[in-house]
């Protein structure tokens, strides 16, 4: 099984949100909706401060509660990978997956009514390209690749750099990693 991961270097990320616009145009995301977003976290008191920027999206969890909760199989792991997709033709719009996502990463497609989300740009991944957000990032702080390939850049980064995932205690085994 191909295990894809995104590795984002918070030390390099400047919070420019280019990834957000790139996603919106690449995937024709309707006005006002977002598949990805950027968080700024500042800790401390002036002048002893620390700021971290994180580009966030669906974590394409290995233990994807959204997939488990879907009553129709519309939410699924794509082609035996960990990439979580929604098949609009199976989706009833029951919204169980939305409630099941600890990262609030899903959205209701408007207009249409089916559930939409980040796809890791699998249509680009299929062609050997990086997701749109990764390929536009001006600081090169985002990386995408296969975790089951020990020589991939994401494997290398996770081997050599301190990192974290969001809310690991949910047990969802997320696959978007943040270098810290």
């Amino acid at each position: 099984m191909a295990h894809y991961a995104m590795v984002i270097d918070t030390k390099l990320c400047i919070g420019c949100c280019d990834c957000v616009v790139a996603c919106k145009t690449e995937n024709k995301v309707p006005e006002g909706l977002n598949r990805d977003w950027v968080v700024e976290a500042t800790q401390g008191t002036y002048p002893n401060l620390k700021t971290e920027f994180r580009s966030e999206r669906c974590n394409h969890c290995s233990h994807a509660t959204c997939v488990y909760m879907c009553p129709t199989g519309a939410s699924h792991h794509w082609n035996g990978t960990n990439i979580v997709l929604v098949d609009p033709n199976k989706c009833t719009g029951c919204k169980a997956c939305i409630a099941a996502c600890p990262y609030d990463a899903r959205l209701i497609m408007h207009p249409g009514g089916y559930i939409d989300k980040c796809t890791f740009c699998h249509h680009r991944v299929e062609k050997g390209l990086d997701p749109a957000c990764v390929s536009t990032c001006p600081t090169h702080c985002m990386h995408f690749g296969l975790l089951d390939d020990p020589s991939s850049n994401v494997s290398e980064l996770l081997r050599t750099r301190e990192h974290k995932v969001l809310a690991p205690e949910t047990g969802n085994e997320p696959n978007v990693y943040y270098l810290i």
């Binding site: 949100c17 280019d18 616009v21 145009t25 690449e26 390929s135 536009t136 990032c137």
Partner: peptide
């Protein structure tokens, strides 16, 4: 109209536009 992306052979952008460039449409 679909998207605007950087030209890989360009020294100014190295193939990566910024937020505003990506939002050029």
């Amino acid at each position: 109209a679909w998207k605007v992306t950087g030209n890989d052979t360009d020294l100014h952008s190295e193939g990566r536009l910024c937020t505003r460039g990506t939002g050029g449409l």
